[in-house]
Design a protein around this nucleic acid. Structure first.
Lengths: 126, 126
DNA sequence: GGAACCTTGACACGATCGTGGTAAGGTTTC
DNA sequence: GAAACCTTACCACGATCGTGTCAAGGTTCC
């Protein structure tokens, strides 16, 4: 069976049970619950937990960073505002530099993506 | 004249001099320096400082969050990995929704990249 | 050449992040 | 019905974030 309890999930993923609850609380991985309220970790959650670990270890980022990235993805207006703030010349190119142009180009991708993922569908079965 | 010193800039933007140095240190706004090393705040910096304030006040985010967004924008591999992690069904869609499919298509790039960096293949014990 | 700036560096401090424990109580299993 | 789980809710603690203040030294202004 691929339905592990929190301690079993902790065992196989390397996270502590405490951290699994924390990761859930900040909204990164919210496993479904059994009838009696027990967290149920399926293969999906386990895989996500492992890749999350890799993500954190790979770069110098924290859970809060990933949580913020999640916010950016869910809250369209927030993402747009942050994005447009960052866009406003981070350096001071007296003239429009090639660098500016480059980032603009790169931005198109994000913009397109943003346009389609704007739906903030929420459905946390509490 | 539009070349203010740090205290003047603080005055007109509402930030404290201390915070202006902090904002610079985390890479958000790095004003040029005079020959003697004094920070020189031009209209650009002032405007950016004001909009930064609005950005922070508008949503419940911190400077560290904006700094991370900046990292995401600068470090392409980081952005891709974070993006692809978030993409991996944040919720559990029993059925694949159209929305999922759409983003799936657009995210192929990120997924491919992720495939090369994700090597954790564990079998669900038990 | 002194007043009034600027610089970096340090000490400090509450708030949050990332963890770990422990307690009080419900569930599952045998 | 007791053991071994699970739940939430606290207390704690080092690390970082977001601030302030202060010290020691260079710069600008008059």
């Amino acid at each position: 069976m691929d339905a592990l309890t929190i301690n079993e999930a902790a065992q196989t993923t390397g996270w502590s049970p405490r951290m699994l609850r924390y990761v859930e609380r900040i909204g990164l991985i919210e496993p479904p619950r059994s009838d009696s309220g027990y967290r149920v970790y399926g293969p999906e959650e386990l895989q996500r937990l492992r890749t999350l670990r890799e993500l954190l270890d790979g770069h110098d980022i924290g859970l809060a960073d990933v949580a913020f990235a999640l916010r950016l993805r869910r809250e369209g207006d927030l993402r747009d505002e942050v994005e447009s703030w960052l866009q406003a010349r981070p350096q001071r190119p007296e003239t429009v530099s090639a660098d500016d142009w480059l980032s603009w180009e790169q931005e198109k991708h994000a913009r397109l993506l943003a346009a389609t993922t704007t739906t903030t569908m929420e459905n946390p079965t509490l």
